[in-house]
Simulated scan of single mutants.
Amino acid sequence: MKLENKELIEGAKKAALEVLLHNAEGPFNNLPRTAGWGYPEPYTRDLLISVLGIAATKNPVLINSMRKVLETLSLNQSKKGHIPSLVHDKDDRGASDTTPLFLIAVAIFREIINEPYFLKDAVNKALLWMDYQSPSDRYLVAQQPTSDWRDEQWVPGYGLFVNTLVYTYLKLLGVHDKAENLRNKMESFTITAAEAHHHVHEGLAVKNKPYYAFWSYKMYSSERFDLLGNSLAILSGIAPRSRAIAMTSWIEKECQFMVKKGELAPGLTPNFFPYIKPGEIDWHPRYENFNQPGEYHNGGVWPFISGFYIAALVAVGKFALAERKLLDLTKTIKLSRKPELEYGFNEWYKAQNGKPMGQDWQTWSASNYLYAAKCVEDKSTPFFDKIRQ
């Protein structure tokens, strides 16, 4: 890597640490805030995903803040094991991804602090809750629309993202039999025939495509591409190595094609494509205001997801491409809505022009930048390497 690029990345890493330390205490019970100014609340999923970046820093202030997040969540866990959507509010419930993210974060945090039984009772309750989220009792977990991080986009039934989280926590916690059964179910093809036979069960593999379906349920599915879910499928080892290599090549070719069509600015990777457009069957009236093509969940560029994609590139050994994408991400996260900021670490960027559209100094944008940089530097993916083996 050229000296000027190394200096650029080092500057961004220092800025990311500054963001995390700034956000480490907020106005709600001194819990971390989700963004520097716009989101003072401690949103569970954002803060749990940030455990990866915090692990990369080894900063004691941030580690203590994560301990407080996890312990508070265990106190606000429902009697049946569900984890709330806001760390401090036990009544804010209904998310499909908070409980599996809690299990992942605890497993990683146990390794960081060398306490193998940290929050053992809460973990056991959460595992039982997740066992009951499979309506068919065949390992795949189902969800309600808008119940995962895509709170403005419909993901009904067996969503890819949530099931990659389930596989990841099962592997991290050593529940290998269940993990393998789940992976086998995901490798089943989505059902495309007009009539489904009772002995045929849907999965998330897509015929003649290297990636996994966005979601699937009975005879319905979406074969649009979800960058977050597929990046986690690579990182966790759900995707066989040959599929993972083919998938990353396919992503880059599709992005080049989108750039030529004017749907994507050079150097960016959208979280979702092809974009849902007005008049299509997947379009909902509310998308008019919140989810235009290339925006928010409908193809916006999210730095925290780009961090997972860069880590996935490292996982398949595409080190030069991972380095280039890290540089692209570094240039992106410098952009901000507040002109006085040297680094914006914005929530999300418009795909067509890279304009920052969300909140600046977003915790998971900064944390996953640090995790991606760590992966590129070390040519490894901490915590995921061992579960892929």
Rank of each mutant, 00 (worst) to 15 (best):
I333K: 02
E340R: 04
R241Q: 11
D328W: 02
L232V: 11
G354W: 15
L327E: 11
P339H: 13
F345M: 04
L341A: 04
C255N: 15
W348Y: 15
E252N: 12
Q352C: 09
D328T: 00
K331A: 01
N289Y: 12
E342C: 14
H297C: 07
M247E: 06
V314E: 13
K253S: 15
N346M: 11
G317N: 06
K260T: 09
A265D: 07
G317I: 09
K331S: 05
R337K: 15
D226N: 08
K355G: 00
V301C: 15
I281L: 14
F345Q: 02
W302R: 13
G229S: 05
R337V: 12
I276A: 11
K261V: 05
K338P: 00
N298I: 08
E342D: 15
G237N: 12
V259W: 06
W283V: 13
R243W: 08
D226I: 02
Y343A: 10
H284V: 04
A312L: 03
F290D: 05
W283Q: 14
F290W: 02
P339K: 14
G299M: 03
I310R: 10
S242F: 12
W283C: 14
R243F: 09
I245N: 03
L313T: 01
L232E: 07
E263V: 04
G262H: 11
P339G: 07
K253H: 11
K260A: 15
V316T: 03
Y296D: 07
I238F: 08
F225K: 03
F290I: 08
K334M: 13
S336C: 05
W302V: 08
K331L: 07
I238E: 01
F345V: 02
Q352A: 14
R324N: 09
V259F: 08
F308E: 12
L326N: 09
F257I: 04
G300A: 09
L264R: 08
F345R: 02
F257G: 01
A312K: 05
P274T: 06
Y309N: 15
G307E: 11
P356T: 03
A322T: 04
P303I: 07
P240I: 01
I234L: 01
H297N: 11
Q292N: 10
L326G: 03
V316M: 00
